[in-house]
């Protein structure tokens, strides 16, 4: 039984294939480009070649992320909140609160046993609470995005980024630059601002014992440190946090396949949308 999880994020598209025991068979990532269905097909094609599989060998395809509805060969789609919760719980079963700071939005998810979403809060339209803000900051400061995390950790006096509006926050950053503040202090200030906004979301969901940070932003150690300080809680970061949503989607596929096996009177492909035929060929 092979389940494929496909995470179509606004920056990257990731595919991961697992077996019924949850073992990862292969994974592949490419930059997301329009048209999304072509990117999805290319990523899946590369993944299958890597694993020595054909699409016919895959029993279930579950998509997630903002492009989840664009893949014609999916059996089912789940939101990135559902997949993040499932993936985090699969990797760290003690997970009770997932924090996913994505490119476009920040999501706090209260998680029950098995990764079930109990409740969730997302930031609305303000990009100041999301990873895209960090990327623009790196561009302003002429710093490589990959170096942001460690640069942030070296800050001695983080600056205050007070605005909740990305446009105004960027003006604040420019002011700090013109005042001659060290770049690392500005970067750390951005991480602190993100952490404080994320904490506001988490607090609306209750009092967890720890926070599991997922998504590509979890690779930025300065942000991890600021979330830990803001929440005053242990912050858990799974290995390869940027793959959590794709893994969670694949785990949902295994669950659905199991449900159809246990209930033969039910349709073999349970789907929120009418399932597409597996016979659809990749371009």
């Amino acid at each position: 039984m092979i389940s494929l999880g496909l995470d179509l994020g606004s920056r990257y598209t990731k595919a991961i294939a697992i077996d019924e025991s949850g073992n990862i068979l292969a994974r592949h990532v490419e930059r997301t480009k329009p048209p999304f269905e072509a990117t999805a097909a290319a990523v899946v094609d590369a993944l299958l070649r890597q694993a020595g599989l054909a699409l016919a060998d895959v029993d279930y395809v579950t998509t997630t992320g903002f492009g989840r509805l664009t893949v014609p060969f999916r059996h089912m789609q789940v939101t990135d909140l559902t997949s993040a919760a499932r993936g985090a719980a699969a990797l760290l079963p003690e997970t009770s609160m997932v924090l996913d700071i994505g490119f476009q939005s920040t999501r706090a998810i209260a998680v029950g046993p098995g990764g079930r979403v109990l409740d969730f809060k997302t930031n609305d339209k303000c990009a100041a609470g999301a990873g895209g803000f960090v990327e623009r900051t790196a561009r302003y400061l002429e710093v490589d995005l990959e170096d942001i995390g460690t640069l942030s950790l070296s800050a001695a006096e983080p600056v205050a980024i007070s605005s909740i509006c990305a446009v105004l926050a960027e003006s604040e950053i420019i002011n700090h630059v013109t005042e001659g503040r060290p770049v690392e202090n500005i970067v750390r200030g951005v991480h602190r601002a993100l952490a404080i906004r994320a904490l506001a979301l988490m607090r609306r969901l209750g009092s967890p014992s720890s926070v599991t940070l997922v998504g590509g932003m979890a690779l930025q150690s300065g942000l991890v440190a600021e979330v830990q300080a803001a929440a005053n809680l242990p912050v858990l970061v799974p290995d390869l946090p940027q793959w959590v949503a794709a893994l969670g989607a694949a785990k949902v596929g295994i669950q659905r396949l199991g449900a159809s096996t246990r209930s033969p009177q039910r349709p073999p492909r349970l789907s929120v949308l009418a399932p597409q035929s597996k016979a659809v060929r990749l371009p």
Partner: peptide, 16 residues
Amino acid sequence: DKVQTDIETFVESVLL
């Protein structure tokens, strides 16, 4: 978009 994501997540939390 946000309503759609919220509602889908809610439905999935029940169905799954």
